[in-house]
Design a binder for these strands. Structure first.
Lengths: 334, 334
DNA sequence: CATCCTTCTGAAAAGGTTTTCAACTTCACA
DNA sequence: TGTGAAGTTGAAAACCTTTTCAGAAGGATG
C-alpha cells in the first residue's frame, strides 16, 4: 500500500496539517519538526497523491491535445514543442488521435472534461458549429493550433496558410515557370485545403497566369498516396514545368512518380513542397519547400493556453507565426 | 461551477447514492427514479468527476508512456498502436519524451506515480540498475516496449533485433554481395546498437565474410545525419557494394549521400534499411528494408499491460513479434 | 503583571465520488 | 396473520489532500 500523508504524520509525530505545510510552505513550520517530517517523507518514500490534491485545488496539471494522427510527422513536431513547453510550465500532455472522426473528437472532449483537464489544445480541425457548441458547453480553456476560427472568438496559433501558398507559387513564377500545377487537399478542408488553393490562385492571378488554375488534383485524406495524384495531374496537364504540393509528403510521392516515369527533377519539372518535414532534406533532389515553425507553434500554443488558464490577459487572440521558403534543389530557374 | 452528483440528486429528488447507482448499476434502481435521474443528468449536463472517482476506486484509466522522441517516426507508429488499443480498453495515454535523458526519465516516473497512473509503457531505453531500483520502488505495473531485460524479470514486447539484422545482412549476401558495410548505432545501446551489430557479424561469420566486419561506422544519436556517416564509411571502404543501415532514416541519409556523389543505387551500391517507416516506400529508389510490426507492437504492449493491471495471468513474460524483409528496389542481385 | 502580538500547531471541513450497512417496503407463502 | 426473503433506498464512511480557524505558547510592551 502506498504511504499517505497520515503515515508520514504518524512517523514524524505531528499532525497531517504540518506535513502538508512542510511540502507547501516550509518556512511556516519550526525547524525541528520540519526536519523530522522531511526525514519521514524520505524513509517512507512518500509522494503526494495528485488526485486528492487536484480534487481540492481544481488543477490537475494536465493538458489535453487533440490531433488527427500522430504518425503524420507534422503533428509529431508540433507535439514535441508542446511537450517541451509543458514540461517547463509543469503540465503533462494527454494526446488523442481522432483520424478526423467527429465522434471520436466529441468523445475525447467529454473524457477531458471528466478528467478535469486544465485546458485543451485542438489542432487542425476546422471549428464546425457543433464542435463550438460542445466546447462552449464544457467551458474549458482552449487554444486552436494550426487552425483558427473567424466566426467565433477563439484563441489560435497558426501560420498564414494563404500567404504561405502564395509565396510558394510566387517563387515558382519568379523562377520563370508558367505551366504550373498543384496537388492540394480537398477544398472542404478550410485550413490546409481552401486557403492554400486560394494562395495558389492569387499568385497566378497576379501574374496573369489564371488560365493555368485548372491544373489541380485534390487529395481527400492526408495519408493518401501522392503518387496517384501525380499520375492524374500529369495525365491532365502533361506540359507542366512546375508543381506546388500542399504537403511535403505529397511532394515526396510526386518525386517518386516522376522518377519512376523518367521525368527528371528539376531539369524537366520543378517541385515545391509545404511543411519542411525532417526528411525533406534527404529527398532526391533535396526538396525546396515552405517551412512552418512547427515546434515553435507547439511552444507558443502551450504558453498561450497557460496564460488563459492562469487568467492573465492574453494580448492577441489569433496569433500568426512567420513561414519561410526554404530553397534547396528541386526548383530550377528557366 | 460544474454540476456535481449532489445537484443531480437534488433535482431528481433522490439521494446521491441512487444517482451513483443509476450510473454504475442501473438495474438496481426502480424505473421511475431511474428516469428521473437520467433526465436530471441530461438537463444539468452532468459528468462524473474522474478525480473523485479515481481517489476511491484507485484507478485512473490513464497509462504513462515514456519514449525518447515522438518526432522519430518509429515511435509515432508505435504510439498510434498504443493509442488505438488504449481507446478500446478505456485508457488514455500520457506521453513523455526523455531525449534519452536519465534525469528526465526518473522525473517522469515520479510524476506518473503521483498522478496514480494505472501502468507504464517504457520504450527503447535499456534497463539500467538504477532505473530498475526506481521502478521497483514505485511498484507500478510496467511493460517494456521494443526493449527488454534479460537481467530482470520484466515483461516486454519487441522483435528479435539480432535475428532481424542477421536476416537483412543474409539477404545482401544471398544477393551476391561480399563487400558489405554497416551504419549502426553505438554499441552502448544494447537494443538498437549491440544486437544489430551482432546480427551483422553472425551473418558475415556464417558465410566466411568476417574480414569485412571492420566496415562499420557508428552513430551516437538517432537524430544524427546519415549523410556524414555515409561519407565516413565510404572513405573507410570505397570498395563496398552493399550497406546495411540500422534504421531507415540513416538509409535515407545514405541514399542522399550516394546520389550527391554520383554513386548509383542499386547499380553500383545496394542499400538495405531497418524499420520500414512510412516514407521508405517513396525514396529513390524505393527502399528495401526489414519491417518491424510497430503498430502491432504498440497494440500488444497495451494489451499486455492491461492484463497485468487487471491481475490476469500473462502467459509470456518476454514477447517477440515477427519481423520481415520487405523487398523493394534498393538491393541488386550481382 | 496584564495585555497584545507573533508564531506555530492541530482539528475539522471541504472537495466529489463509491460502497457498505442498516432499514424500510413489498411480496410470497404457510 | 405471521415469517422470511427479495428488492430499494439513504446515511455515513472512506479515499487523500489543502485550507481555515481557533487556540496555545512565547515574547514584547505598557
Amino acid at each position: 500500500m502506498k504511504p499517505t500523508i497520515k503515515d508520514v504524520a504518524k512517523l514524524a509525530n505531528v499532525s497531517i496539517s504540518t506535513v502538508s505545510r512542510v511540502m507547501n510552505a516550509p518556512e511556516t513550520v519550526v525547524e525541528t519538526k520540519r526536519t523530522r517530517v522531511t526525514e519521514a517523507i524520505e524513509t517512507l518514500g512518500y509522494r503526494p497523491n495528485s488526485l486528492a490534491r487536484g480534487l481540492i485545488s481544481r488543477k490537475t496539471g494536465t493538458l489535453g491535445v487533440i490531433i488527427p494522427d500522430i504518425r503524420n510527422s507534422y503533428y509529431a513536431d508540433l507535439i514535441r514543442g508542446m511537450e517541451d513547453a509543458s514540461k517547463k510550465l509543469g503540465y503533462n500532455l494527454i494526446i488523442c488521435n481522432t483520424d478526423s472522426d467527429k465522434n471520436r473528437l466529441i468523445s475525447y472532449l467529454n473524457n477531458f472534461y471528466e478528467k478535469q483537464i486544465d485546458g485543451i489544445l485542438l489542432t487542425s480541425e476546422p471549428v464546425y458549429p457543433d464542435y463550438y457548441n460542445e466546447l462552449k458547453r464544457l467551458k474549458m480553456p482552449l487554444v486552436l493550433v494550426s487552425t483558427h476560427s473567424l466566426e467565433y472568438e477563439l484563441p489560435s496559433v497558426k501560420i498564414n496558410d494563404e500567404q504561405a501558398a502564395y509565396d510558394a507559387v510566387s517563387y515558382l513564377i519568379s523562377s520563370g515557370h508558367k505551366e504550373i500545377g498543384m496537388i492540394g487537399f480537398d477544398l472542404s478542408d478550410s485550413i490546409a485545403g481552401l486557403t492554400r488553393y486560394q494562395g495558389f490562385v492569387r499568385a497566378l492571378r497576379e501574374y496573369n497566369l489564371e488560365a493555368v488554375k485548372k491544373n489541380i488534383v485534390y487529395i481527400h485524406d492526408w495519408a493518401e498516396n501522392g503518387e496517384e495524384a501525380a499520375q492524374k495531374l500529369f495525365q491532365l496537364a502533361p506540359e507542366l514545368t512546375a508543381v506546388f504540393a500542399a504537403s511535403d509528403e505529397l511532394a515526396i510521392g510526386l518525386l517518386s512518380y516522376l522518377h519512376e516515369n523518367g521525368i527528371s527533377v528539376p531539369e524537366r519539372v520543378s517541385v515545391i513542397g509545404f511543411d519542411n518535414i525532417r526528411l525533406s532534406r534527404f529527398t532526391i533532389p533535396k526538396l525546396t519547400t515552405v517551412a512552418q515553425p512547427k515546434y515553435e507553434m507547439g511552444v507558443r500554443s502551450v504558453e498561450k493556453l497557460h496564460r488563459i488558464i492562469s487568467g492573465e490577459k492574453d494580448p492577441i487572440l489569433r496569433e500568426y507565426l512567420p513561414h519561410e521558403v526554404v530553397v534547396r534543389d528541386s526548383v530550377k530557374r528557366r
